[in-house]
Every structure is written in C-alpha cells, then in structure tokens.
Simulated assay, not measured.
Amino acid sequence: MTTKAYAALLRGVNVSGHKKVPMAELRALLTELGHGDVGTYLQSGNAVFTSAVDDERELAARLEQAVEERFGFGVDVLVRDHAYLRAVADTCPFPAASLEGRQLHVTYFSEPVTSSHLASLDATRYLPEEFRLGDRALYLYLPDGIGRSKLAEALAKIPPADGVVATSRNWNTVVKLVELTRARPA
C-alpha cells in the first residue's frame, strides 16, 4: 500500500485558552483515524502523518469531524502533502534565507484566491511590509513581525472569498513542516 506524508493545519486552536486541543490527544485522534507516523509540532495545531488516502479534502473533512466529536467544537483544517509544502517554501518570493522566521509568514488557503480579491488593499500604504500571492498561499513579509503589522491587520479585515478557509504560519513553522513531512516514510 502506497502512503503519502501530510501536514494538517488546524485553524485557531490553543489561542488565548480557546479551542483547546492538546497535542497528545490530537496525535491519538490521528492514529485512531488510521494514519501512521503521527507527530505534532508546537501547540498551535500542526500535525504530520502518513496516509494511504490520496485526497487532501477528504482527510481534512474526516479530521474536522473527529475533532468536533472529540472536543465538542468545530475547527477548520487544511491538509497539504509534502510536495505542496516543499513547493510553497521553494517558490517564496522573498529572500527567506536572509530573514528571521518572525518576519516572513505564509497564509495557506483552502482554495485558490485571485489577486482581485485583494485589490481593495492599497499595498503601497503598508511599505516596507509586503505580500505576494502564490498557489493557494499568501506570502507576507513583515519586518517587525506579525504582532505589530498594519498590513496583517488590514488583510485580516478583508472578508474571505466564499468558502475559503485561511490559516497562517510563520516561516520557521513553514520550513519545519517541510522537514517533518519529508522525514515521514512515504
């Protein structure tokens, strides 16, 4: 049986004491769902695993349902395979190697988002902060980090495109998820 390595990105868990999902319980849940080589990274809802299922949407839907049944609240989940995570890291339009991890972020989208969706934002107003749209991803260069970012604040106020789920990770996490999914037997 052929398996693939994946990362599951849970949106908005363990933030300020809300939607608590202990990582040990998330690992157990993924194992109960039949996945192998399960691991987690940090407390912010990053899990890695292998699966014979070759459908990211199906994997995400199953995990969303299992989280709701186990913890009693809904959580949006994005699942991405190693090849996609690697491509996102490799095609970063900013000089990632010369930046601190807190200065660069990726917002992953469940569906493609077009530049017209972000057209209402006057990007020049936020310089030196910048963003670039990628394949189901938005790259953010935030020299002072996300906590003080006016650009990130403005982007958060733009309503999501219909049915699109978004979740962000800093560059350190982006790189670590590539590494962790590569290390999983496939």
Score class of each variant (00 low, 15 high):
residue 75 V to L: 13
residue 34 G to A: 09
residue 121 L to A: 01
residue 19 K to S: 14
residue 79 V to Q: 04
residue 33 L to W: 12
residue 58 E to I: 01
residue 112 P to N: 07
residue 95 P to V: 12
residue 30 L to K: 07
residue 103 Q to A: 08
residue 129 E to N: 01
residue 93 P to M: 02
residue 120 S to W: 00
residue 42 L to V: 13
residue 102 R to S: 09
residue 96 A to Y: 02
residue 70 R to K: 15
residue 90 D to N: 05
residue 42 L to T: 14
residue 60 A to Q: 10
residue 61 A to R: 13
residue 78 L to S: 00
residue 95 P to E: 10
residue 75 V to C: 07
residue 58 E to V: 04
residue 37 D to R: 05
residue 48 V to R: 04
residue 107 T to K: 06
residue 111 E to F: 01
residue 113 V to C: 00
residue 56 E to S: 09
residue 45 G to W: 10
residue 47 A to G: 05
residue 132 R to A: 07
residue 47 A to I: 03
residue 35 H to N: 11
residue 23 M to Q: 15
residue 62 R to Q: 14
residue 42 L to G: 08
residue 57 R to G: 13
residue 59 L to R: 09
residue 63 L to C: 11
residue 65 Q to Y: 01
residue 35 H to R: 10
residue 129 E to A: 02
residue 105 H to Y: 12
residue 53 V to I: 10
residue 43 Q to W: 02
residue 67 V to P: 00
residue 57 R to P: 07
residue 39 G to L: 06
residue 66 A to G: 05
residue 56 E to R: 10
residue 69 E to P: 00
residue 19 K to H: 15
residue 128 P to A: 05
residue 121 L to R: 02
residue 56 E to C: 10
residue 97 A to W: 09
residue 36 G to Y: 06
residue 110 S to N: 00
residue 52 A to C: 04
residue 27 R to N: 14
residue 47 A to K: 01
residue 27 R to M: 13
residue 80 R to K: 08
residue 63 L to W: 05
residue 78 L to I: 05
residue 52 A to Q: 06
residue 103 Q to Y: 09
residue 81 D to F: 04
residue 45 G to A: 12
residue 63 L to D: 10
residue 36 G to N: 04
